[in-house]
């Protein structure tokens, strides 16, 4: 019957639409089905966060273990305060771990890389990472380089 093909067509259309939404969610935006409800927050202070944005990833040994949830300026120390949300499964970060702002490729996005320290004590919710390495600022680098060569010339 003609009615039947029509209904099947509509059914397929609705299925395709929902499937497309699902694809966008899972494949394109990389949304995980169980959202990272199990996380804890730590803070890190940087001299210069230059270009780091909220939602940037936090990696350890190249593996994503969390993301940046907030960036603001600390009024007292004039440093950039970055709040990191770390996966609960990674609960054994030593307190003297280092956080550095890295760049993916020469001009790619900024992200935070953690490297492990040696202490027994581990970071918990609300802790602060003291050992940080700020972003590499290209202008500073070039400035230093120029200064060096000028100094050499004058010698």
């Amino acid at each position: 019957m003609q009615n039947r093909t029509l209904e099947i067509g509509v059914g397929l259309f609705l299925l395709a639409g929902l499937l497309a939404l699902l694809l966008l969610a899972l494949r394109v935006s990389g949304l995980t089905v169980s959202p990272s409800a199990e996380t804890y927050r730590i803070q890190a202070y940087f001299d210069n966060i230059s270009g780091l944005t909220v939602r940037a990833k936090v990696t350890m040994a190249g593996v994503v273990v969390g993301k940046v949830t907030a960036i603001d300026l600390d009024r007292d120390s004039y440093m950039g305060r970055v709040t990191l949300e770390i996966d609960k499964r990674v609960d054994n970060l030593p307190v003297d771990s280092t956080a550095s702002i890295l760049t993916a490729g020469l001009l790619g996005e900024k992200y935070i890389g953690l490297s492990v320290g040696g202490e027994e004590e581990v970071l918990v919710d609300g802790s602060t990472i003291h050992d940080t390495q700020s972003a590499l600022v290209l202008e500073d680098l070039i400035g230093k380089f120029m200064l060096n060569s000028v100094n050499k010339d004058s010698e």
Binding site: F13, L14, A16, G17, L18, A20, L21, L24, V28
Partner: peptide
């Protein structure tokens, strides 16, 4: 909205 999602995919 479904058409838009299909379009994007």
């Amino acid at each position: 909205p479904l058409l838009a999602a299909i379009f994007s995919v």
